[in-house]
Design a protein around this nucleic acid. Structure first.
Lengths: 205, 205
DNA sequence: GGGTTAAATTGACACTGTCAAGATTCATTT
DNA sequence: AAATGAATCTTGACAGTGTCAATTTAACCC
């Protein structure tokens, strides 16, 4: 059933997501045209509409995959109890910026205005994204308990600010504003040091 | 010469920028159509092309205006020596987030992928934007000298991280991700407190 | 086989940015 | 004041885009 049929494609849904992801990484969100995508896959212009309500629905599906991917990375770092919290905290920062800069277009999709602008995001995307946000708060609370981050602030606020920092750095790098890729590591270290100012254990780096 | 002529508009350049800014704030970048814009102003579809090479050129001009506006705000706060540095630092943070959330679409234009994605920005935009970036470094260096920010980091890195934080918070709020407008003030205070951890003078707020 | 349903197709519409060629007005020079 | 040249604005046209409607094709179940 997964052969090379001509009329019924067989697994157009997955094929579209894969092809769209590839096209996305090459040409960006703006350069992702449904028609050219269909041509790539070898179906007619409107075939995708039987699997995705919208162009937004397709993009949402890709973004959802990105969230799942990232969530897994974050969980692995966070749950690796063989390393000290401090190291895991730094790893987390580097992993976040690494993920964002390795897949800039997908990152843009996950957090950009295209999907979150005016409630264009699919319900199924929200169901994947929100737990991802929530996880950040959980981690932040634990970092506060471990004394890594100051605990005189609400965990939610703290999570918003720390994530905001990573988000902002990622975007400055991605968009090539005011920061270029050669300074990624140093910027991550600088951010980590800034957050852990009162955590006086290791000032050497 | 600013009358109601019919063929020659008289001051189409400024009129277009104003109308485009208005349309932008209402419908966003995506919703800004050159054709509808021309109709708004009362000229034909291609009239704008005699004043702007591109749609990008128009957007760049609007963004440039935004940078000038912000630069002026920042300078006023920074140069107001009647207030203590600490207060001016907090004011700066609140002003930044305030500017971004008051004109979300213009902010998106100033720092988003539309103009900075792949070198689409006009030269004249760069000429306005880069000094704006540079100014941030200057301020950061002085904040370090005053003991507000830790001085064991390079000023450039520090500036990238602090601006990154503000940029990230602004975007999270604007895109409605993980943070909503009702927490703006608290988030700003949290960020300020985080930056000034080692500055032990005022912990009360 | 017949009938239901899912999947893929062509045709069409409204919309977009942008180029080319022509019309109109302004400015300046003679 | 007339003419020339440049600036400005116009209509016409083209290649794209997302998306809907009606239609054909294939699969699946009884």
């Amino acid at each position: 059933m997964a052969g090379a049929s001509q009329y019924h494609h067989g697994d157009l849904y997955s094929t579209l997501i894969d092809a769209a992801s590839a096209r996305l990484e090459k040409f960006g969100i703006e350069g992702l045209s449904l028609r050219k995508l269909a041509e790539d896959v070898g179906v007619s212009r409107t075939a995708p509409y039987h699997h995705f309500k919208d162009k937004n629905a397709l993009l949402s599906a890709i973004a959802a995959k990105g969230f799942e991917q990232w969530h897994q990375i974050a969980e692995e770092i966070f749950a690796n109890e063989s390393l000290p919290v401090e190291q895991r905290f730094k790893d987390f920062i580097h992993a976040y910026i690494g993920f964002a800069t390795t897949h800039p277009q997908i990152y843009e999709l996950m957090f950009g205005q295209t999907l979150w602008g005016e409630g264009k995001a699919t319900d199924s995307l929200r169901e994947v994204a929100y737990p991802c946000f929530q996880y950040q708060v959980t981690m932040t609370r634990l970092w506060q308990e471990k004394g890594l981050l100051p605990s005189d602030q609400h965990a939610l606020r703290m999570a918003q600010v720390t994530w905001g920092t990573l988000h902002g750095i990622a975007r400055l790098i991605i968009d090539g504003i005011y920061a270029d890729a050669s300074h990624i590591e140093e910027m991550c270290d600088c951010a980590a040091a800034l957050f852990m100012q009162h955590h006086a254990t290791s000032a050497t780096g």
